[in-house]
Write a protein that binds this DNA or RNA. Structure first.
Length: 353
DNA sequence: GTCCTGTGCG
DNA sequence: CGCACTGGAC
């Protein structure tokens, strides 16, 4: 049993200097590089483990000989892929030192460069979004139970996330309200409530039958393992039925106010690839899963954009950069987009075969 | 008929 | 990977 909760008190894995907008003089540059496995049987952890020292804070630091300020956080390593890991380097000195150091069985990529013009693209999308009106305006669970005590608010956020997939915001909100009015928004109450009752209260959210069942299970787990609170780490959130990577990151963001990763859904996934913002490690191929996209995006996107990028691209994806027949003709950033007019163009220009 | 801000199963 | 789970909107 590894019930150890190494870091109940969450800290951001890496601190960014705030106020990067103002031209502060003393900011330390950060770099991320891939560490890639060559054909060696050992896992990344086995190789690096020797060098890892766990500090009391729960953060892990790597100290390699002759390298200062070389660190990675465990959160960076959550990746499912074992062939490539990312490492955060603080300071140019560390980068040059690491480049000269050989780690047996592994190769280092060049530091990941942000895609050219990404700031202009983001700006353009923001402008389009402020004029257009997309169904998504605010994340529903953001305000879920905002007037409740902290613990109950966190539970409300979790429930809201559980219900919200494939469900319109408004429907989700109504379901939460009904649960609240019936005092069924705590782990304790849901655990002892009838599943049929829950089912009828959350109707008509999508997949209400399964969600009612998941809700019961989640409440039970929260009650027995977390004293009615919700898990405070990504790993533990992912163990809950009905919580996948997308919602786990959302819950970390909103419930714990702890940005551990970008919340990537199909819109963020699709658009990031169209813009050429992400690729499979060390290649130029598109990413294949939202998880790959998340890792790739996190390599270069400044952390202050990690939260706003989701609603921004979701709205953009619903109105303009749609999955089928993207409306490149009215898109303000089509001249910066490598995929513009490339797929399934307008009806008039039916591609000849 | 097809499309959804996902997750879990085989 | 592909599909089911659900129902409403277009």
């Amino acid at each position: 049993m590894r019930r150890t909760r190494s870091s109940l008190k969450q800290e951001t894995p890496f601190e960014k200097n705030p106020g990067s907008g103002g031209s502060g003089g003393s900011s330390v540059p950060e770099f991320r590089v891939f560490v890639r496995k060559k054909r060696v049987k050992k896992t990344m952890e086995e190789v690096i483990a020797k060098e890892v020292k766990e500090e009391s804070s729960g953060k892990k630091f790597v100290r390699l000989p002759d390298i200062e300020d070389f660190s990675y956080s465990k959160d960076d390593m959550l990746s499912q892929s074992t062939s490539a890991k990312t490492v955060l380097l603080t300071g140019e000195k560390a980068l040059s030192q690491l480049k000269q150091t050989e780690i047996k069985g592994f190769s280092l990529s060049d530091p990941v460069q942000p895609p050219s013009n990404w700031e202009k693209v983001l700006e353009g999308i923001r402008k389009m979004r402020s004029s257009e009106d997309a169904p998504v305006d605010s994340m529903g669970c953001e305000k879920a139970g905002s007037s409740l005590p902290a613990k109950e608010r966190r539970f409300a956020v979790l429930v809201s996330s559980l219900l919200s997939s494939q469900t319109k915001d408004q429907i989700n909100h109504g379901a939460i309200q009904r649960l609240l009015q019936n005092s069924l928004l705590t782990a304790d109450a849901i655990n002892s409530a009838n599943e049929e009752t829950i089912k009828s209260l959350i109707y008509p959210v999508g997949f209400y039958t399964r969600k009612a069942s998941n809700l019961k299970k989640v409440a039970k787990i929260c009650l027995s393992k977390y004293d009615g609170d919700i898990p405070s780490s990504l790993e533990e959130l992912l163990l809950l039925p009905g919580i996948g990577p997308k919602m786990a990151h959302l819950v970390m963001n909103v419930a714990w106010n702890n940005v551990q990763g970008i919340c990537v859904d199909t819109h963020v996934h699709r658009i990031s690839n169209r813009l050429g913002w992400v690729s499979r490690p060390g290649t130029k191929q598109k990413t294949r899963t939202p998880e790959e996209t998340r890792e790739s995006l996190q390599l270069w996107l400044p952390k202050e954009e990690w939260v706003p990028i989701n609603p921004l691209l979701v709205g953009f994806g619903q109105t303009i950069c749609t999955p089928l027949r993207p409306r490149c003709a009215i898109c303000a950033v089509s001249d910066l987009c490598p995929s513009a007019f490339k797929e399934a163009a307008s009806p008039s220009t039916t591609p000849k075969k």
